[in-house]
Nucleic acid binder design. Structure first.
Length: 290
DNA sequence: GTTCAAGTGACCTCCGTTTA
DNA sequence: TAAACGGAGGTCACTTGAAC
């Protein structure tokens, strides 16, 4: 059972996280699945990997149906829980191979649970339709059609192809230094014309209740935050980290993680900024590691 | 050349909403 | 309340491309 857990846990977590956009819920589901299966049961199963994927996917579908209601009453923009990836972590190795960006997870959010499962299994994990049909309990042609329709409906494919370019890292470094210097001209160069800033406080902490759109408004918003931080008794520390496979920022206070920021870069400019401030979504980020 | 998996257009069915 | 309508989701059949 231990080998089974260490062998498949990263893969199962990667499926659950993409389906739900929540680190803690994904961990719970994977853990529950391992608690539910007994050694006897699993030994009788021919394809253990497909069996475990099916269990996790079905759990996610059930969970998502109930979570959907919660999100409908969510205060402000909903963002996924950030996943801070480190080198040599088994989960990082699985995640870095596949799409996991905030932009991708937010697009997935628009799909129904079955569409999500089919898309993740096919586009991200490259499963064949036979396996997918067994996992989601739909016919093979139906799975092909679901995938085809999702592809036509949403521009998800580009989000799953390629890894974050090193250029992004330089861009985020330039962004941070422009912030500290208060260099408005440089900030405006880095931001796309229609840049959108999403701020998720979940009603627990201060955050913008609506997405902020346009270069001018976003620049003013972030400079204002920097000004407040500068005048604080204990200014926060900003650190560059790997957030969901892309270069991002972690803002550390005296005794807790205050904010995690992720960026979506398009055509050499920052197209979207995702700011997670909801403490509920930062609980899993360990302060000691940073 | 054959086989097979994948992708997609055309068509059908079902179900929720609208309207008389 | 029942018929009409539209959209979502499913099946069938065909084309395409890769592997052998």
């Amino acid at each position: 059972m231990e080998d089974l857990y260490s062998g498949y846990q990263p893969l199962l977590f990667s499926i659950a996280y993409r389906m739900l956009g929540s680190v803690s819920d994904a961990e719970d589901i994977v853990h529950d699945v391992y608690l539910q299966i007994s050694e006897k049961t699993i030994e009788q199963v021919e394809n253990k990997k497909a069996y475990l994927c099916k269990m996790v996917t079905n759990r996610c579908i059930d969970f998502f149906k109930s979570a959907r209601y919660k999100r409908e009453v969510y205060i402000g923009p909903w963002l996924p829980e950030p996943l801070i990836l480190k080198d040599h972590d088994p989960i990082s190795e699985v995640m870095n191979q596949e799409a996991i960006s905030f932009a991708f997870l937010l697009l997935l959010e628009k799909l129904n649970p079955i569409e999500r499962a089919v898309f993740v299994l096919r586009q991200v994990l490259r499963y064949d339709y036979k396996k997918i049909s067994q996992i989601v309990d739909r016919s093979e042609p139906n799975c092909r059609k679901i995938f085809s329709r999702v592809n036509n409906q949403f521009p998800l494919k580009e989000e799953t192809e390629g890894k974050p370019e090193p250029k992004n890292k330089e861009m985020i470094q330039a962004f941070v230094s422009a912030l500290y210097q208060g260099n408005i001209q440089k900030l405006e160069e880095l931001l796309g014309k229609e840049v959108t800033l999403y701020s998720d406080g979940g009603g627990n902490v201060y955050a913008a209740l609506k997405p902020i759109i346009s270069k001018d408004l976003v620049t003013r918003f972030i400079l204002n935050i920097m000004k407040q931080n500068h005048h604080a008794d204990e200014p926060a520390v900003v650190k560059m980290v790997n957030v969901n496979g892309e270069c991002g920022l972690l803002v550390k206070g005296m005794d807790n993680i205050l904010t995690v920021i992720s960026f979506h870069v398009k055509n050499d400019q920052i197209a979207d900024i995702y700011i997670v401030r909801n403490p509920e979504k930062l609980k899993h980020v360990s302060l000691e590691s940073y």
